[in-house]
Amino acid sequence: MATHATTHELTFDGDRVVKRFVDWERGEHLREWRGLSLLARYAPGLAPEPIEARFAEDPPTIVMSRLPGEPLGAAPLTDTQVRALADALTRMHASVPESELADAKPNFDPERTQAALSRMVEEAIRKGGVGAETEPIVAKAYQVATAFAASPWAQQAERPFGGPVPTVFGQVDGNLANFLWDGKKIYVGDFEDSGRSDPMFELATLVEHISVVHAAALDAERLFAHLSMTSAECERLRVFRRAFAVYWLLRLLPSGPSHRRNPPGTLEAQAAHLLALE
């Protein structure tokens, strides 16, 4: 049986999964293999076991073990699942030594990330913004989004620390479908964007992912209650959550790439969500 995604194709063969990369221009196959290898060494049992890297093939292919369980997100998470998710995230972020990540390209860079959000706003403006016929709540959220993108938000997230920010191994893909529940524990899959990251940036990618916000599958505050965070980390998380809420609003605009992929009303719901984070 095979399943398809925008960047890869998965084929399930007994207790193995074959992942063929449709798009690997950003080195997705290399990051996937490195991520699987690091977790196999430092957090065995959390993610698929890497079995074989076929990088000489076109397209490049990775063979890994098959995880048990079903993807999260089809229904609201139970208290037990929320606690297990917190445990899986904590283990993933704490297991890999910083020395193993020293030469990895950071997934969060303040200037690069802020510039990327600004480019999204510029593209939205170039395509006409929200238009006169837009629902008032969307127009208001759009104003908030453009103002936020123009602010030094990434630098503001650094200030509470007054020094170096923690570095962790991060998945950088908050889709709940990447977390599998077998009735007892949660496993983590999909590491093609993984690398050196920031724990609060990682947490924001999860709780603000469209699969979480609009499926109402995960209550962010319930998850946070199981995580140990300092006041500086809470402030950093607050800024990053707003950034990702802006990101999804821009993607859901009529001119955005996610507009037609989601049911009617998603844009208005995202606008309300962004305004509620103010």
Rank of each mutant, 00 (worst) to 15 (best):
L77N: 02
V172Y: 09
P68D: 03
H4D: 11
E98Q: 09
H273T: 05
E70Y: 09
E123Y: 10
A150N: 07
W33Y: 12
A149M: 08
L10P: 04
A47M: 10
E278Y: 06
N262Q: 13
D79S: 12
E100R: 14
T3D: 12
R119D: 13
E9K: 13
F148S: 06
A215M: 11
R83M: 11
P71F: 08
D193G: 14
P106R: 02
A216I: 08
E57S: 13
L77K: 03
G174P: 03
D193C: 09
L30V: 09
A204Y: 01
M92G: 07
A139S: 14
T3G: 14
T61W: 11
A220R: 06
P76F: 02
G162C: 04
T80F: 06
I137K: 06
P106I: 01
P110A: 06
L227A: 03
A276D: 15
F21I: 05
F21Y: 14
V138L: 07
L38D: 10
R126K: 08
Q171C: 09
A272W: 08
A74M: 03
A56S: 08
W248R: 11
V63C: 02
Y142S: 09
P164E: 02
T134K: 01
R251W: 14
G35I: 10
D58M: 05
L72E: 04
E221N: 02
V82Y: 01
T3W: 13
D87A: 08
Q114Y: 09
V121D: 04
Y247M: 13
A245G: 14
R20V: 07
S151V: 05
A124F: 07
P106S: 12
D173F: 11
L176R: 00
A75V: 15
R238D: 15
L117Q: 15
H226N: 14
S194C: 09
G163R: 13
D79H: 12
Y187L: 03
E233G: 11
T80G: 10
L237D: 00
F179E: 06
Y142A: 11
T167R: 15
M92K: 05
A145V: 04
A269W: 00
E122H: 06
V165Y: 02
E100I: 05
R241A: 01
A216C: 11
L275W: 05
S99H: 12
L89A: 00
P48C: 07
S228D: 15
